[in-house]
Design a protein around this nucleic acid. Structure first.
Length: 779
RNA sequence: GCGUCCGUGGCGGAAUUGGCAUACGCGUAUGGUUUAGAGCCAUAUCCUGUAAGGGUUGCAGGUUCAAAUCCUGCCGGACGCACCA
């Protein structure tokens, strides 16, 4: 009998599958389309790590299972190749991002092929290729036409490490999501997408989505809907009024001062009136130079300065109250100004104490009444900000806009797309507020598409997250070079049937993709608002308690495991590690257990072949175990099926192990059971299952095109059931009863049981029978 | 501070959702096969006790015939948001 040689059989089947294009689906003719999507990787120089394999294996098992359930499963793969990460790495290496990316992608592709997943390589996407980013630019233009892309001067987050501005979502606790540098504020003219216009819809639709609850909660929090009131405070001796936003108009009588953010629009006009002008100007200047972290750190003491000579009037009681400037009030939320009610707000109290401001504990009043009396206006605010998409970097799609001296802002005509990213040697960030492309004259200088006059190109590129906000629309339509996505194909394949990815994208990619989809739907490109009807977050595979990353030096490559054990063992081992949706700490201690298991399957199946050839009578044990085994078979099908549906791969594998243990223990070589075993195993260990399906069972077609085994619920029903008997909460005996025995019958059997009687003293007070489980006796 | 989740053997983790806690696997021990090792096979493996028994799911209570599971309060850990008015 031949030894199980995983490397040999895996190579053999991968070659054959590739040759036969086994995983391609006819996208036009497919009857039961199932779009099985995973978040595409960024092709890092370190190559694929075990965390990627963990993630993709889980998705692939789902896809293979759905395929056996009769669906036409489309499982594409691609590369999120543009972006600061690739560019930074090229800078470090002294190479060029384009060369670096090409090299990394081909390495990644080879590694991915070793996984034995059913990726459809004919539909590969690479976001850094002109044939892709042409359509990213097209998307920008559509958003521009729809009034959803605008250019504005605003205080924006700037990362000095990455030398670019960042979107709100890419600032984590005041630090850059990429490099961890403290983010500072700059006043710059930048391109934004009006995602806030969709705040209400992004929030409302969440209820309808079948998504991991944690991700929905994160999105709800990020959108941060808050219902309140806008009130106006008059300024004494001046025409101007200050608008504030509050969720507590009922505390208006207790408002003893106003606080404006340093960037508040009215501040300059107050300066003529202010007696301590120098101090105020100094304060405003200082807060400008603070990093986001310094401004928002809760541990820091609040700072502020009074606008001496400016007095506001509380509309509730007409009392004169002072006006302060403090940077704990944010300019980009609400109206950038608040009424301070120290008696009812901790932060205001802290501030009032420090600066010895009066505190009034005026009682609360009726909300509705006070709002109508002082003329307040109901207002909904969101934490969500518009999506800043300009990046002062090189490795991204140029924003397709031209500035004409005569015509102003002119979008690049669609026929002129793509605006090619020029290959330049000096691609390094400039550190000014301009992209390195600004120094490339042949690129920057152009003519106006409208008037033909002299014009300048926009030299910023767009955010990487724009590339990934629509890649799932491109996958099925990669063969079309005259449109981003084909109408018919899109109608057939979208929305995505199942999307699996990391929680870290809860408010980044997943929010952006939803926004882009909604915007395109509004433009009439298709008729669905939500791109991913079902989303599941997988767990994160970490190493020594930390996320795998090159900087920490804890990246584990799958290659040595593929070489030593083969892909099937690696796949199953990763899935057996723990619940897929939890992830865990990587260690390879138990991998031998999976190797042993697959070897046992191998031996079992080949012995079956030998026994069949000899035409020998099946082992005499078989007869006596047939009944029990048939039951176990149906139970195993049920368990594995249900566990796969719930992405609980670890317990599905445990179920398969128990099944194999039983088959081995009783040396049962029966083709019916082996066929079922191999089918249940096929999504997990696709190569081994295929090899044995052909070589041991003699089939000539692929096991991966076989229908998934079904179980008969009738066959699982037991005729006899074991029940535990408890006396006063302690297990004192075990009885076997007919499955359909009545409660009284069970009760009688339990009370007659010898072991149980030892613990009984006279008549029991109470007997509770839980059918099929337990008899509980209270004395 | 707010939100979400978690705490079970030496280790990764199971537990039909309130019904025999520790499935499955790792590791370990003993035995078998073997010149030897590797491998494979068998048996054992929560604690305590010779045994009958008793105890055990981070800690302390509570509800219940019955709690890893529900409730309350602590302790510890992970993640997300965070001066959002």
């Amino acid at each position: 009998m031949t030894e199980y040689n995983p490397l040999k059989i895996e190579q053999k089947w991968r070659d054959r599958w590739e040759k036969e294009k086994a995983w391609n689906v006819d996208l036009k003719k497919a009857k039961k389309p199932y779009y099985n999507l995973m978040m595409f990787p960024y092709p890092s120089a370190e190559g694929l790590h075990v965390g990627n394999v963990f993630t993709f294996t889980g998705v692939d098992i789902h896809g293979r299972y759905m395929r056996m359930r009769g669906y036409d499963v489309f499982e594409p793969m691609g590369f999120d190749a543009f972006g600061i990460h690739s560019e930074n790495f090229a800078i470090k290496q002294g190479t060029h991002p384009q060369k670096e990316t090409e090299k990394n992608i081909s390495h990644f592709r080879e590694q991915l092929k070793n996984m034995g997943a059913m990726f459809n390589w004919d539909h590969e996407v690479d976001t850094s290729k002109p044939e892709y980013y042409k359509w990213t630019q097209w998307l920008f233009l559509q958003l521009y036409k729809a009034g959803l892309a605008y250019r504005a001067k605003a205080p924006v987050d700037w990362c000095e490490g990455c030398k670019t501005v960042l979107a709100d979502e890419q600032v984590i606790s005041g630090k850059c999501e990429r490099c961890g540098t403290d983010v500072i504020q700059k006043e710059l003219e930048q391109w934004f997408f009006r995602i806030t216009k969709y705040a209400e819809r992004l929030l409302g639709n969440l209820d309808k989505l079948d998504w991991s609850e944690a991700v929905k909660v994160a999105q709800r929090n990020w959108i941060g809907r808050s219902v309140g009131t806008e009130l106006e405070f008059r300024i004494k001796n001046l025409e101007s009024r200050i608008k504030i936003f509050t969720t507590r108009p009922d505390t208006l009588f207790g408002a003893t001062y106003l606080v404006l953010s340093p960037e508040h629009e009215h501040v300059p006009s107050f300066m003529f009136q202010v007696s301590n002008r120098k101090v105020v100007e100094k304060y405003i200047g200082a807060s400008k130079n603070k990093t986001e972290l310094e401004r928002t750190d809760l541990a820091k003491e609040k700072t502020g300065v009074e606008l001496k000579g400016v007095t506001a009037i509380n509309p509730a009681n007409n009392e004169e109250i002072p006006v302060w400037i403090a940077d704990y009030v944010l300019s980009n939320y609400g109206t950038g100004a608040i009424m301070a009610v120290p008696a009812y707000d901790e932060r205001d109290m802290e501030f009032a104490k420090k600066f010895k401001l009066p505190v009034s504990d005026a009682p609360l009043v009726d909300k509705e009444e006070i709002v109508s009396r002082v003329g307040g206006e109901k207002k909904v605010n969101y934490h969500l900000r518009d999506w800043l998409i300009s990046r002062q970097r090189y490795w991204g799609p140029p924003i397709p806009i031209i500035y004409c001296n005569a015509c102003g802002v002119v979008p690049v005509p669609e026929k002129d797309l793509p605006v090619l990213l020029p290959y330049v040697e000096n691609f390094r960030p400039t550190g000014t507020d301009k992209s390195p492309l600004a120094n490339v004259e042949e690129f920057a200088k152009t003519t106006c598409p409208k008037c033909g006059g002299e014009a300048q190109r926009e030299t910023d590129v767009s955010d990487t997250f724009l590339d990934s906000s629509w890649y799932f629309l491109r996958y099925p339509s990669t063969e079309f070079d005259d449109k981003p996505f084909d109408e018919k194909i899109t109608k057939k394949w979208l929305p995505v049937s199942m999307y699996i990815g990391g929680k870290e994208h809860s408010v980044l990619h997943l929010m952006y993709a939803r926004f882009v989809t909604m915007a395109l739907e509004d433009m009439g490109y298709f008729d669905f608002q939500e791109p991913f009807l079902k989303f599941r977050a997988h767990g994160l595979l970490i190493k020594d308690g930390a996320k795998m990353s090159k900087s920490k030096g804890n990246v584990v490559s799958p290659d040595e495991y593929f070489d030593a054990y083969g892909a099937d063992v690696m796949r199953m081992f990763l899935m057996f590690l723990g619940p897929y949706e939890f992830g865990g700490d990587w260690r390879d201690e138990g991998i031998a257990g999976i190797a042993r298991f697959l070897k046992r399957v191998w031996t079992l199946s080949l012995k079956l072949k030998i026994e069949n050839e000899k035409r020998k009578a099946i082992d005499k044990n078989l007869k006596s175990h047939t009944n029990g085994l048939e039951k176990l078979t149906h139970k195993t099908i049920k368990k594995v099926t249900e566990d796969i549906e719930k992405l609980q791969y670890n317990t599905a594998i445990a179920g398969l192990m128990e099944y194999v243990n039983t088959l081995t223990r009783y040396t049962i070589y029966d083709i019916r059971y082996t066929e079922i075993l191999l089918k249940l195993l096929a999504p997990f260990a696709p190569h081994l299952a295929e090899e044995l399906w052909h070589e041991a069972l003699g089939h000539t077609t692929s096991i991966h095109s076989e229908p998934w085994p079904t179980y008969d619920p009738e066959k699982i029903i037991e005729e006899k059931v074991q029940m535990v008997v408890q006396v006063n909460g302690k297990v004192r005996g075990e009885i076997e009863v007919d499955a359909d025995a009545s409660e009284d019958m069970v009760k009688n059997i339990a009370l007659k049981d010898e072991k149980v009687r030892k613990w009984l003293d006279g008549e029991p007070k109470k007997v509770i029978v839980v059918p099929w489980r337990v008899v509980s006796i209270v004395t």
